[in-house]
Amino acid sequence: MVDVKLLGLWYSPASHKVEWALKLKGVKYEFIGENLQNKSPLLLESNPVHKKIPVLIHSGKPICESSVIVEYIDETFEGPSILPKDPYDRALARFWAKFLNDKVGAAVNAFLHKGEEQEKGKEEVFEMLKILDNELKDKQFFVGDKFGYADIAANFVGYWLGVFQEASGVELVTSENFPNFCAWRDEYVNCSQVKEYLPPRNDFLAFIQAYASKT
């Protein structure tokens, strides 16, 4: 009997972060796809505060918020460590994960909206990418020499951002503007620890194009 369930969406980077952690740990789980226009009673009951995905349900107990869930998975299940063991490296990983999570909204506004909202988002994304371009010079991973917590959090900028750019036609992330970031991104999406966990690009691109046209 499966006692781990994940309420999520196949195209959600937050859902994928949790799935990633479960797969890295070798945890068997049941994925339950949600409809955000018609949220299930299970989702509303499991996350009554925010009513959002993802939600991990382990032995009947719900855990919410993707970063919290990933840490819970790391502490609860056997397998490779996701957070670094060294306290300083662990703090760095949490710092970059929070930085990346905080910037997702601006990126969505930059690529899927119009007018003032888009321009403001583009400015914020440009500043974010300048910081990342400086940080990722000659680096494969965010912290140390091992794929981990911050790299899982980077799935949006490493993969989703490029699909959003192609779907919207907004040319913002280029190797001329951000050579270090783009070199890191290209290695990231082809890394064996990454590509097997990403949604199919063609399916995802078609979905985002359809969503962008409605937006």
Rank of each mutant, 00 (worst) to 15 (best):
M1G: 12
V2R: 08
L7R: 09
G8Y: 01
G8K: 06
S12W: 07
A14L: 14
K17T: 05
V18I: 07
L22Q: 03
L22A: 04
K23V: 13
K25P: 05
V27F: 03
K28A: 11
K28Q: 13
I32K: 10
N35E: 11
Q37P: 00
K39P: 01
K39E: 06
L42E: 07
E45S: 15
V49A: 05
H50W: 02
H50M: 08
H50K: 11
K51Y: 09
K51N: 08
K51M: 11
I57E: 01
H58V: 09
H58T: 08
P62K: 11
E65A: 11
E65I: 11
S66F: 06
S66N: 03
V68K: 08
I69V: 08
V70M: 12
E71C: 09
E71Y: 07
Y72I: 09
Y72E: 02
I73V: 15
D74H: 07
E75C: 06
E75W: 02
T76H: 02
F77L: 11
S81Q: 14
S81A: 15
S81E: 13
I82V: 12
L83P: 00
P84I: 02
D86N: 15
P87D: 06
A93T: 03
F99V: 14
N101F: 04
D102W: 11
D102V: 13
K103E: 01
V104D: 00
G105V: 07
G105A: 13
A107C: 15
F111N: 04
H113W: 08
G115V: 07
G115A: 14
E116Q: 13
E117S: 14
E119H: 12
K120I: 14
K122M: 13
K122R: 15
E123K: 15
E124R: 12
E124G: 00
E127I: 09
M128G: 01
I131Y: 06
L136D: 02
D138M: 06
K139E: 02
F141L: 07
G144M: 04
D145M: 06
Y149C: 09
Y149A: 10
Y149F: 15
A150V: 05
W160A: 07
Q165F: 05
A167C: 05
G169W: 03
G169D: 01
V170L: 06
L172A: 09
S175H: 05
F178I: 09
C182M: 15
W184Q: 04
W184H: 04
R185Q: 15
D186A: 15
D186P: 02
E187D: 09
Y188A: 01
V189Y: 00
N190D: 10
S192W: 00
Q193H: 10
V194N: 00
Y197V: 09
L198C: 07
R201N: 03
R201W: 07
A206N: 15
Q209T: 13
Y211T: 11
S213Y: 08
K214Q: 14
K214G: 00
T215M: 15
T215Y: 11
